[in-house]
Design a protein around this nucleic acid. Structure first.
Lengths: 337, 337
DNA sequence: CTGAAAGCGCTTACAG
DNA sequence: CTGAAAGCGCTTACAG
């Protein structure tokens, strides 16, 4: 049987309250008392029962991060960033993966969850604007990304449009004239990262005074390397001329890179390639991949800060913020002039 | 104020016990009773208090997975695999990252943790055999990997030696004679993946009757792409002749690939490269990377199964197993003959 | 099939 | 600075 706080109290000859004070770093405890308690803890190999603490205090010191899946480097890196930032304000992160499944996402965002957390950072993928009304969070929640907007939740976004604009402007500035826009379908009705990045990319064409061949706007079935590779391979096979590819995430861009190289194209000499996310994969691919850095660290920092300030009572319940992280285009080998 | 179980009971006109039975899927409840309870739950928007449940039952339905960091694809993919497998037996996974830090690892493995879980799957990186005595788990624990052995814990390992042997045998069989062994130092005293893979690689040389130039055994400062790239670049700069590289993980191999390509070497024509881990990065690099698949899915399955069987009382406390996952060499472009 | 009571192990006011 | 008591919201035997 594990020792309880009252076992410790009895052994140290103090009350349970005093043991609790010592454990929770309460100040103003006589040094001798503290020493006696700590000794009793050691002797009994006592450990706090987290469930009891959580039940009584109504808090857990834990926040959840819900993302589609850890096998996508963007999300793995985001998760690590959130974990690291949260640790600086003594919050533990529970990473939950949804697989982008609508039901799982709805369950998470409406409080039907298996783990008790004080807050939630949620990056939706399956649910869309139509599901906004089904969002009935039971804990303070910060939304990530552009899929959903909800007037009574905090929100951290990235500058999708401006960032995509800069990437395509860069490609056009290096002399490319037929830049494939790989990601969103031209008629995608959803307000999300894809359509926003597409809009920014289109604007770059317009601003450079270059006509965009509509056949260069292509949407793979998903934003994965496999799909990126297949889509670009298909373009090559049908003899479509192009001299650059803007992948709307790094996975697509890396898939494109692979299709190009395996078909004998040289990158960047024959075709330039740029991506979006600036994952570690972009930095280490061959050639290294030019990519938009969406400020992952900053996104993590902003999201945790919004939650932490609310949890610690520094923000009012009715107050809701929307913040935008700043981006930067990382130019690398894949788009050399 | 959130509704409690007794609010629901009052509204449904039943006892708290009956509400509990309905929520926990207890059989033998009159259909009409169940319906009334479910309606009351809906009306009151009642949600179970997880802390209270955990405290009373002494269980959480949650297991922890402690890994060094999510930014390493091997671990991100392992984490996703563990999450997926655990879900099939109704266990939720709490991913904890240690950064390979000795103190954090010791804290986790001796029960000083912030979250209440029923079990632990632990992949140590910082602590070594000398710390084995400091391992005093408070919950059933499964160790992963070769860094530590502990007679009273379950253990899942991979066939490091045989797998490395097969990879190097493959390189030698395609005619390469000077295979760089990139990873472990020849005099590394630690019993871990590195020394074991080195031993298997050496044996491959011996079995093929090829002499191993000791200068081809090189240890980067860490098993990262950066370090792999720097180490191979240094070899190239000092004019060391070699016609293949066996990276003891994919990160090292991909770093080597990059150093080779950026210095004008062709892969696999001039230098062949093989890795270990078979991460998604290996499949998608250019050229695609031959790599040992250590059976990540199987490792996740075995670890969760060991834990689940113990938690569900199907295994005795004194019983401890050590299981080895099976591997397979995935041959790809980077080692074409 | 359902109820009444006890109790899991903490923290939180309330005192002094 | 420390104590005694209450109570967080469930599940678990024990009855019937």
């Amino acid at each position: 049987m594990a020792a309880t706080m009252s076992d410790v109290a009895r052994r140290a000859g103090v009350s349970v309250k005093t043991v609790s004070n010592v454990i929770n770093g309460h100040p103003y405890i006589r040094a001798s008392t503290r020493r006696r308690v700590e000794e009793a803890i050691r002797e009994l190999d006592y450990r706090v029962n987290i469930s009891a603490r959580n039940l009584r205090s109504g808090r857990s010191g834990t926040i959840a991060l819900a993302i589609p899946e850890l096998t996508q480097p963007y999300f793995a890196e985001l998760a690590q960033a959130v974990i690291d930032v949260a640790a600086t304000v003594d919050l533990t992160v529970f990473v939950e993966t949804t697989g982008g499944d609508v039901d799982r996402e709805l369950a998470i965002v409406s409080g039907r969850r298996e783990v008790f957390t004080d807050g939630l950072i949620f990056s939706p993928q399956g649910i869309g604007p139509d599901d906004a009304s089904a969002i009935t969070p039971t804990v303070p929640t910060v939304l990530l990304g552009e899929r959903i907007f909800h007037s009574s939740l905090d929100h951290v976004t990235m500058a999708n449009e401006a960032a995509a604009n800069e990437a395509v402007t860069h490609l056009l500035a290096t002399g490319r004239r037929r830049v494939v826009l790989l990601g969103a379908a031209p008629d995608d009705p959803v307000v999300g990262a894809g359509p926003l990045r597409l809009r920014g990319a289109r604007a770059a064409y317009a601003e450079a005074g270059v006509d965009l061949d509509p056949r260069l706007v292509v949407a793979p079935r998903e934003w994965s390397r496999d799909a990126g590779e297949a889509t670009v391979r298909a373009l090559l096979e049908q003899g479509m001329p192009f001299d650059a590819v803007f992948g709307m995430n790094d996975a697509l861009a890396l898939g494109a890179l692979r299709a190009l190289v395996s078909s004998g194209r040289r990158v960047p000499e024959d075709v330039a390639v740029a991506g979006f996310d600036n994952t570690l994969d972009a930095r280490f691919s061959t050639p290294s991949l030019t990519s938009v850095d969406p400020g992952r660290r900053e996104i993590a920092g902003l999201a945790v800060d919004l939650l932490h300030r609310r949890l610690s009572g520094q923000r009012e319940d009715e107050e809701h913020e929307e913040v935008v992280a700043s981006f930067r285009l990382e130019v690398r080998e894949s788009t050399a002039a």
